[in-house]
């Protein structure tokens, strides 16, 4: 599946650091977020997004990946 998303900054800008986020690639929007990846995925599925993109917002201590 190809994606059109090349910049996640806007989608993630209001999400707390460290949160897991379910993103609809089709709608180009955030569907659910939270600390528990399973709960986030379940919420996205309940909202009709069966295969969301699961990403994690960088937090202050792990943002730089070296």
């Amino acid at each position: 599946m190809a994606t059109t998303i090349a910049d996640l900054s806007d989608l993630l800008k209001d999400i707390p650091a460290g949160a897991w986020v379910a993103i609809s690639e089709r709608q180009h929007k955030t569907i659910a977020f939270g600390v528990d990846a399973r709960a986030v995925l379940n919420e996205a599925k309940e909202k009709g997004e069966q295969l969301p993109l699961m990403v994690r917002v960088p937090d202050r201590n792990t943002a730089m990946f070296l």
């Binding site: 998303i5 090349a6 910049d7 996640l8 900054s9 650091a17 960088p58 202050r60 943002a63 730089m64």
Partner: peptide, 11 residues
């Protein structure tokens, strides 16, 4: 594939 832009928090 395009690179992905990720905003990193201030430190």
């Amino acid at each position: 594939y395009p690179y992905v832009a990720i905003s990193l928090p201030a430190n």
